[in-house]
Amino acid sequence: MANALPRSFLQVATTEEVASPLRVVQMEGLAILKIIKHCKEFSPALVTGQLLGLDVGSVLEVTNCFPFPVREDDEEIEADGANYQLEMMRCLREVNVDNNTVGWYQSTLLGSYQTVELIETFMNYQENIRRCVCIIYDPSRSNQGVLGLKALKLSDSFMDLYRNNNFTGEKLREKNLSWVDIFEEIPIKVSNSALISAFMTELEADAPVTQCDYDRLQLSTSPFLERNMEFLIECMDDLSMEQQKFQFYYRNLSRQQVQQQAWLQKRRAENMTRKAAGEEPLPEEDPTNPIFKPLPEPSRLDSFLITNQISNYCNQINGVAGQSFSRLYLLKALHEN
C-alpha cells in the first residue's frame, strides 16, 4: 500500500466500515500459559478470566489475559469483582499491555461448556464489543498430552434468533438453523515475540523425550473414557426428557385441533339451521373459548444445546478411542519385537 494515495482521517472515518468476518484468533504464548495455569490450579472448579488484545482486520489478537476471582453469590462481592476488573485493567495499562477486552476464557470439564450461561455471557460481551471470542480450555485433556484449547463464537444467525428469543420450530426452519450452527469454532494461531522464541530455544531441554510424549503414550485412558460415558449418559437422559416435553406439546396440540374442528362443525351446523330459520349466522370464531388459545411451544434451545454436548462427547470418545487404538497397536508391535 506504499504507493496508494494517502487518505485523510476524515476519509477513513467516512468510508463505511465493512466488518470482515473473524477468521483467526492469534494467541500469544503468554496468554496461553496464563490461561492454562489459572485453569489448572483451580481444576476441577471452573474458572473464568478476561482476554485482552487487539482486533486487526479478520484476525483477533489475544496478547494478554487476567483471571477473575472465584465468583460468589454475594452482591457485595460482585461489585467488588467489577472493581477488581477495572483496577486490573488500569494496572495493566500502566505497563503498556493492550487493554482492549476481546472476550473471555473459561475452563471446562470434558468439554461440557455448551450451556445457556455461556450464551448469555457471550451476548453480554457482544453488546459492548463487536467482535469477541470465548476461549475454552479443558485441563483434563492436557493430562493426555493434548492442548485442549478452543476458540468459539456464536454464529450470527443464532444471535439474531436469540435476541428475539425465537426458538419455535417455525422460525428455526425459516432460518435453516440446526444444532450444528450454534457455535462456530475459530482456528487458533499461536505467536510469540522473537525474544521469547530465543529464550525457549535456549531453555529447551536436550533430553530426547518430553513430558508431552510421556503423557501421550500413557496407556490408561479408561478413567477419562469412563467419565466421558457417564456424562454422555446423563446428557442422553436430559435429551429424552426434552423430547418427552415436545411429544407432550404435540399431543396437546393435536388434541386442541380436534377440539377446534369439532367446535367449528357444531357452529356450522347451528348456522345452517339459523339460516334456514332466517336468522343472522353466528361468527365462526370465538376468542373467549379456551380451546382457541394458542399453546405455548417449548423452546428448542435446551434440546439444541444438549444435542451439541452429546455430539461433543461422541467426538471426544472417538478421538480418544482412536488414540488408544494406535497405542495398543504400537504396544503390540513393540512387544513382538
Partner: peptide
C-alpha cells in the same frame, strides 16, 4: 509445564494451528 504445552508451539514466533490430538 512448557513441555506439557509443547515446545513446538512456544519456541516459534508463529504457529499456524494448534496440533490436534
Amino acid at each position: 509445564e512448557a513441555e506439557r504445552v509443547g515446545f513446538d508451539i512456544l519456541k516459534k514466533t508463529a504457529v499456524d494451528k494448534v496440533p490436534t490430538d
